[in-house]
């Protein structure tokens, strides 16, 4: 009896939190089907905004910029971050700590301070635009990659790498066949983390972008006073549903057995 009451309370509470988290999303999805440009009145159901979305050049351009930026910055941050983490891990204790403090700075610092500091520095040598935003995004993405990969490097079995070298593998081959598989899950998590952070960023982009370049976030911010174009709600709904399906598949798909690098050494 008490157990059932506890279950009921737990369910109700989780339900309330989900309502709190998803209420604004529900509002936005409704707006994407609202046959009225006004935000407050319901003008009936329509698919119009979804059709108009693809012929809206500005929004499509901002979408392409956002995706290009997220992908490029996540990729480069992953490359620099993984190499960085491997190197930092091999450092002497003191150097390791110093580098980790600097790694934590972009995470601990307020976005607004990071954005302004980068902007003040960029104006000295490059015009503000896509390039400066890309540099800024790589900068705040690298720490997320390092923090995702570092625990995997700590757990990494170094003897496997040495065994591979003893058995005649050259450094590069051993790296790709033995080290990389052990770090794969951390690298992947770091990449997706970086991609998400880049997609979601507004503040740092806002300060480093200059005129002319727009990501979806800065475009939406610019439209707050004039009123958001309903096509934007449609696009957001599409992105949301897309990610929902991907996460659903990733979480509930039967998992493949993970390779841990050990069997590679056995086969050498």
């Amino acid at each position: 009896m008490v157990e059932r009451l506890k279950n009921l309370c737990s369910r109700c509470y989780i339900g309330l939190i989900i309502l709190f988290l998803y209420a604004p999303i529900l509002v936005l999805v409704m707006l994407s089907f609202n046959n009225s440009r006004s935000r407050v009145t319901w003008g009936g159901f329509t698919f119009d905004w979804y059709q108009k979305l693809f012929s809206n050049g500005q929004i499509m351009e901002a979408l392409v910029t956002t995706l290009t930026l997220a992908f490029t910055s996540a990729l480069l941050a992953t490359l620099i971050g993984v190499l960085g983490a491997l190197g930092i891990h091999a450092m002497r204790q003191k150097n390791y700590q110093i580098v980790m403090i600097f790694t934590n700075i972009p995470l601990l610092n307020a976005d607004i301070v990071t954005g302004i500091a980068l902007m003040l520095w960029f104006v000295h040598f490059i015009p503000l635009g896509f390039g400066s935003v890309l540099l800024a995004h790589i900068t705040f993405n690298i720490p997320y990659v390092i923090l995702s990969v570092m625990p995997k490097i700590r757990q990494m079995n170094v003897s496997l790498y040495e065994a591979a070298r003893d058995l005649g593998a050259n450094a590069l081959y051993a790296f790709f066949r033995v080290i990389l598989p052990q770090l794969a899950s951390g690298i992947l998590a770091g990449f997706f983390m970086a991609f998400t952070m880049s997609m979601d960023d507004f503040v740092i982009t806002y300060f480093t972008k200059g005129a002319g370049v727009n990501t979806l976030s800065t475009m939406i911010y610019g439209e707050i006073r004039k009123g958001i174009k309903p096509e934007m709600y449609a696009l957001s709904t599409i992105i949301f549903v897309f990610v929902f399906l991907i996460l659903l598949a990733a979480n509930y798909w039967p998992q493949k057995r993970k390779s841990d690098g050990a069997h590679v050494v056995e086969n050498l």
Binding site: I25, V27, D200, S217, I220, I228, S236, N251
Partner: peptide, 26 residues
């Protein structure tokens, strides 16, 4: 089953300025 991650991370994929604007409407 990853349920927690799922319900907490998913909202982040709706642009945060839009979500705050939705709160303004609410």
């Amino acid at each position: 089953q990853g349920f927690t991650m799922f319900i907490l991370i998913l909202p982040m994929w709706m642009n945060f300025i839009l979500r705050i604007l939705a709160w303004q409407m609410i």
